[in-house]
């Protein structure tokens, strides 16, 4: 039994079936890649897990307990944090304030100065210490992605949902990000569900890869298995899914 499990989840928007009988397991301490072409339903899956959407059918369990009766603001208390594909930072707040909001999510009975220290340490971890007092608005997209990552980490999650974290990053930064995600797993014992279009990154860091197309699971396996899967290659029209670098 995984830390997170989605079972036979269906969700439709009018005529579109965004998730069609999707079942997905994420085992504790693993990095699971969730891939698929645009519109496959990856973000929708995140939204179902974080309770922004209610599935029409199916079950979502975290640590053995159903999430379907949990309101969105309590998701973080269960230990789930996420980032957004289109970054949802608080624009007029400083970088540090953004992270503080995240840090407060797990700050019951913790004195304010300790929370602050924790937020600063998280910024250190993602390499944004120098920008702490800068307002978020106006920072480059790649930096905002890191602010969001820091905000999610500051809430001290067990499961981290990353929605295209490499968006807006250059080649070197993507490399760096790969190493960072692994460190999260290895050093912080985090479980990660990763949505990403950079196939090289996904294939390199993931322990397991789950592939969606048109809301349906078309493959699930180790990176090597998935890359050889003809349905996957077909779904990507052979183009995008390169062999992992090295």
């Amino acid at each position: 039994m995984g830390l997170l499990s989605m079972r036979e989840v269906r969700l439709r928007f009018g005529g579109i079936v965004a998730l069609d009988n999707v079942s997905l397991e994420v085992d504790e301490g693993r990095i699971v890649g969730l891939i698929g072409p645009n519109g496959a339903g990856k973000t929708t899956a995140f939204n179902v897990i974080t309770r922004l959407y209610r599935p029409d059918e199916g079950e979502v369990e975290f640590d053995g307990k159903s999430l379907l009766r949990t309101p969105p603001y309590r998701i973080v208390k269960h230990g789930i944090a996420r980032t957004f594909q289109n970054v949802e930072v608080f624009p007029t707040m400083t970088v540090l304030e953004n992270v503080l909001v995240g840090a407060h999510a797990s700050s019951r009975f913790e004195p304010e100065h300790r929370v602050r220290t924790r937020a600063e340490e998280t910024l250190e971890l993602v390499g944004l210490r120098a920008l702490a007092e800068r307002p978020a608005v106006g920072l480059p997209f790649g930096t905002l992605k890191r602010v969001e990552l820091a905000r999610a980490l500051a809430s001290q999650p067990r499961l981290l949902l990353l929605d295209e974290p490499a968006g807006g990053l250059n080649h070197e930064e993507v490399e760096e990000l790969g190493g960072f995600i692994r460190r999260l797993r290895d050093e912080l014992k985090l479980t990660v569900l990763l949505v990403e279009h950079h196939m090289s990154l996904v294939m390199k860091v993931s322990d397991w890869v789950h592939v969606l197309n048109f809301g349906r699971t078309i493959a699930s396996g180790t990176p090597a298995e998935v890359q050889r899967d003809p349905t996957v290659i077909e779904a990507y029209l052979g183009g995008e899914i390169d062999a992992p670098a090295a």
Binding site: L52, P72, A81, M93, L100, V101, S107, S155
Partner: peptide, 24 residues
Amino acid sequence: TKVGLAMRAAALRPFAARLVGVRV
């Protein structure tokens, strides 16, 4: 204050605020 910060967060980005535990 913690609540003040949460209020600002709720006003700016309600969905994101919810998911970091703010009762929007």
